[in-house]
Amino acid sequence: MSKEKILSRIQANKPAARALPDIPAFEFATSDLHAAFTSLAEANASRCLSLTSTDEMANFISVQFPEAKQIASTYSSYKGNVDLQAVTDPSELKQVDVAVIPGQVGVAENAAIWVTEEDCVHRALPVICQHLILVLSKKQLVGNLHEAYQKIQIDQSGYGVFIAGPSKTADIEQSLVIGAQGARSLTIVFID
């Protein structure tokens, strides 16, 4: 009933038709996408590194997160120690110290990375883990967000997210604090 009421009021009150504009191709000014991405990412308190093999990744994790007990990975060439398929209640993932997840597209203008449900196994994984590592190839970088939306299909997955850094807040006197409710750190690993 509400629906009809709302729709008929809109019909009665809406203005005359206005055309939907086409969105032009805005070009991203910088050609070195990786450099642009990295500097933005660092400004967002993320860390970027380039590795040549997955062995180096294991090394990096053991050096960077020596205390980590639970490492969950959905990145095919790196095995963690958490069996994500066996997890039924996503709350259990709060024990995960480090999650390694492959990203699909990286956006140079804002250092955001597109990640979908399929990449995570559990939707909660990238946000509930203590530390997040997203894996990307330089070939997956695009200039701006328009290009990114051209490349992805937002409804292909039930859930997809652009992640642009560690969880943060500035709700107390506008002081930036890293590590609000989500992951305390974000590392972006480029493997090419």
């Binding site: 701006n144 652009f162 992640i163 943060k168």
Partner: peptide
């Protein structure tokens, strides 16, 4: 979907000068 390119680019920059919010979540 492509309109998101416009609005998401504007939103966080206008709000607090961030290029994009940390999480831009798409629920379908």
């Amino acid at each position: 979907a492509q309109d998101l390119g416009i609005f998401v680019r504007l939103l966080a920059r206008s709000a607090i000068g961030q290029a994009i919010s940390i999480f831009t979540s798409h629920y379908h």
